[in-house]
Simulated scan of single mutants.
Amino acid sequence: MTQWIDAAALDDIEDEDVMRFDHAGHTYAIYRIGADVYASDGLCTHEQVHLSEGLVMGHVIECPKHNGRFDVRDGRPLCAPVCEKLQTWPAKVEGGRILLEI
């Protein structure tokens, strides 16, 4: 059963940035791109490195270890060495808070 979880304040994330969110034994990455927020699994599918330490450029997160890139909107891999899609999760802003549907 999925539910909306309060993850953070919108102001906790700068524009074009990422933050780590841990919940129920799982790590997520939350991205802010302008007024939009996105969420994905928090670990790169290539080497299990925390994406929250990566670089956000537009709608792209670059893994800090081997520079693999994913589109944060749908998790698709954009360049080697990543080839496995990143799991994404619905995210929204309500009352200045970021909510994830997990």
Rank of each mutant, 00 (worst) to 15 (best):
L43N: 00
E16K: 05
A9F: 14
D15K: 03
D6K: 14
G34N: 09
D41T: 09
T27N: 03
D17T: 02
D17N: 12
L10F: 11
I13N: 04
S40K: 04
T2I: 14
A29F: 01
S40F: 00
D41A: 14
R32C: 00
D22V: 09
W4I: 15
G42I: 07
M19P: 06
E16P: 02
I13V: 13
G25Q: 07
T45S: 12
C44K: 01
F21M: 05
M19K: 13
D17H: 08
D11H: 05
D36V: 08
V18I: 15
R20E: 08
T45L: 09
I13A: 06
D36Q: 13
W4D: 09
W4T: 10
R32W: 04
T45M: 12
A39D: 03
S40Y: 02
V18C: 06
H26L: 13
I33Q: 10
D11C: 05
W4F: 10
T2P: 02
D41W: 10
Y31Q: 01
I5R: 06
D11F: 07
A9Y: 14
A24H: 11
A24D: 15
H46G: 12
E16N: 10
I30Y: 05
L43I: 02
Y38T: 01
D6T: 13
D12G: 04
G25P: 04
D11M: 05
T27K: 02
G25R: 07
D17W: 03
I30T: 03
M19H: 03
G34E: 08
A8Q: 01
D22I: 07
G25A: 06
I5E: 08
T45Q: 11
R32L: 02
G34F: 09
G25I: 11
A35K: 11
C44P: 12
A7L: 09
T27C: 04
D36E: 15
G34I: 13
H23M: 09
M1V: 15
R32H: 03
E16T: 04
E14Q: 14
E14N: 12
S40M: 08
I30S: 04
H46N: 13
A39G: 10
D12I: 05
A35M: 08
R20C: 06
E14K: 09
Y38E: 04
M1T: 14
A7W: 00
A9V: 07
F21H: 06
L10W: 07
D41P: 06
V18H: 00
H46W: 15
I33P: 05
L43E: 03
D22T: 10
V18D: 00
T2M: 11
Y31V: 02
Y38R: 01
D6V: 13
T45A: 07
D41G: 14
D15A: 03
F21R: 01
T2G: 01
A7D: 06
G42A: 09
A29G: 09
F21V: 03
I5F: 13
T27M: 05
H46D: 13
E16H: 12
S40H: 07
A24P: 02
Q3D: 11
G42W: 00
D15R: 01
D41N: 14
H23P: 10
Y31T: 00
H46K: 13
C44S: 12
E16Q: 11
E16L: 04
D12N: 11
V18W: 00
A7C: 14
L10K: 08
M19A: 11
